[in-house]
Amino acid sequence: MVRIGLGFDSHPFQEGRRLLLGGVDIPSPEGLKGHSDADPLLHAITDAILGAIGEKDIGELFPNTDPRWKDAPSQLFLEKALSLAREKGFRVVNLDCVIVADRPKISPYKDTIRENLSRLLGVKKENISIKGKTREGFCPDNGIACMCVVLLEDEG
Rank of each mutant, 00 (worst) to 15 (best):
G59M: 12
G22P: 00
L20A: 11
A72R: 08
F90R: 00
L82P: 08
I58Y: 08
D154K: 08
L95S: 09
G137Y: 10
C139W: 13
L42F: 09
D25T: 14
A101T: 02
L152E: 00
K125Q: 07
N142D: 15
L76M: 12
G23K: 02
L50A: 11
D25M: 12
H35N: 04
G16L: 05
D57S: 10
P27V: 15
S10I: 04
Q14R: 06
D66G: 04
I130N: 04
R103F: 09
T65D: 13
L20I: 14
C139S: 15
K33Y: 15
C139G: 10
L121G: 11
E126N: 05
L19M: 13
I45R: 10
C97L: 06
G34Y: 12
N116S: 02
C97N: 11
L61N: 09
I113E: 10
L61P: 01
K70R: 14
N127T: 07
E79C: 02
P67Q: 06
L21P: 07
G23S: 08
K131E: 14
N142Y: 06
L21H: 11
P27M: 15
P63W: 00
E55W: 01
L41T: 15
F13N: 02
I106F: 07
P12M: 05
I53S: 09
E87D: 10
M1A: 02
R86L: 08
V150P: 00
L76C: 03
L84D: 07
W69D: 10
D39E: 14
P40D: 14
R91E: 06
E87R: 10
R68Y: 05
C148T: 13
D66R: 04
V98W: 07
F90T: 02
G54T: 06
E79A: 14
Y109V: 14
E115V: 02
S36V: 12
D141V: 05
D102P: 01
T134N: 13
N64L: 05
L121H: 13
A52I: 05
H11V: 11
K33H: 13
R18M: 04
I106N: 03
K56F: 10
A72T: 06
I45D: 09
E115A: 04
C97A: 15
Q75P: 01
R68N: 06
P40Q: 13
S107Y: 03
F77W: 04
L42Q: 12
E136H: 09
H43T: 15
E30I: 14
V24Q: 07
G54M: 10
D111H: 05
A52Y: 02
L76D: 12
D47L: 08
G22Y: 01
D9Q: 08
